[in-house]
Design a protein around this nucleic acid. Structure first.
Lengths: 188, 188
DNA sequence: TGTACATGACTGTCCAGACAGATTACTAAA
DNA sequence: TTTAGTAATCTGTCTGGACAGTCATGTACA
């Protein structure tokens, strides 16, 4: 057997990319990412064929994390509103603890390096939340509004909320509550 | 007097930039913008010192247009909700007629080429709408929520609405109504 | 006729990705 | 346990292309 590729190194590259993207944006040289990860820039390309590939993988990784964080300790038996508040709190906590990951994800989301296949795969990761949202939508004032619109709305309110929490962490809990209540008024 | 700089040419550059940004993103070569505007690439730099400068100017120009479109035929005497619906309809119409400008503006907004001074100047252009929004906020369930948060929320709902309208123009009017009603439930 | 704009070839810089040689993890025969 | 063999990764230098901005020359307006 030949020399194996290390998962650890792959993760170090993804982590490094996250950090570098936050400070330098998506135009950051691969060289910088490699250096930050503690490897030669050439090695980066054995783990990710192209820079674009790296960004797409990172997008999925971050989206994945965001989805699984949201569902942590999910209260299966609680009522719909409590379930929603739960997810919201999880997101808030995550945003406060990993502001870099969130920033990087935001940059990747608006980038056109991310292919539509990657985006679709990303959506699939969020399907559990989508189903929950669907149950809220179909019973409220937005029952005749396309689901895609409702998803977009939820995402933007969530984003705005997390921004506010990060910008003014002292009242984070309050902002979190304000955000989810605003969403709830909108769709329930 | 020497040969004068032409305002027309300046506008042609800004228009060209809008179009090129939509199809190629902000990394579009200045060469392409110049060609699209029908001038030599060198000339672009007599009108805008740097590429960054061009983008900042374009951002302001678009923001300006968006603000003035919003206030067109403003019903000074109507009640608050009607005034808001009016603005919303104007935005919708604009989005349908100038989808390119909207896309370009969206790209510029998230770019870090746009300085904070430019952003502040951009906000000033929207102050009329801000004051209106303030009157709604201070009388509703969000009266204890920071204005900055409310502005962000309005912007995201507006964005989501316009996206939906462009994506499915047949039911644009409906989507427009759905959007503003969602906003209204949220803050009034 | 002077002054500023217009032009497009040109330059210096930057960077993604290739490459050639060094290194490593692992296997299997001795 | 040692050793030789193998196939992959790792490294850092190198290259080819792209691109923002310059500049020398030409041109048009007052």
């Amino acid at each position: 057997m030949p020399r194996p590729r290390s998962d650890d190194k792959r993760n170090r590259i993804l982590d490094a990319a996250t950090r570098v993207i936050v400070t330098q944006g998506l135009s950051a040289p691969t060289m910088g990412i490699a250096k930050e990860a503690g490897i030669a820039n050439g090695s980066l390309f054995t783990y990710f064929e192209t820079k674009s590939e790296l960004f797409n993988q990172l997008y999925l990784e971050l989206k994945q994390e965001m989805a699984s964080v949201a569902m942590k300790d999910f209260p299966t038996e609680a009522d719909l509103q409590d379930q929603f508040f739960h997810i919201w709190r999880n997101w808030g906590t995550w945003a406060l603890h990993s502001p870099e990951k969130r920033k990087a994800l935001a940059q990747l989301t608006v980038s056109d390096e991310i292919t539509s296949e990657t985006r679709i795969a990303g959506h699939r990761l969020m399907s559990a939340i989508g189903e929950l949202l669907e149950r809220v939508r179909s019973a409220g004032p937005m029952r005749k509004v396309p689901m895609s619109f409702v998803i977009t709305l939820m995402n933007s309110v969530a984003d705005a909320t997390m921004d506010q929490m990060i910008q003014d962490p002292k009242h984070a809990k309050n902002h979190c509550k304000n955000g989810v209540e605003a969403l709830w008024r909108m769709l329930a």
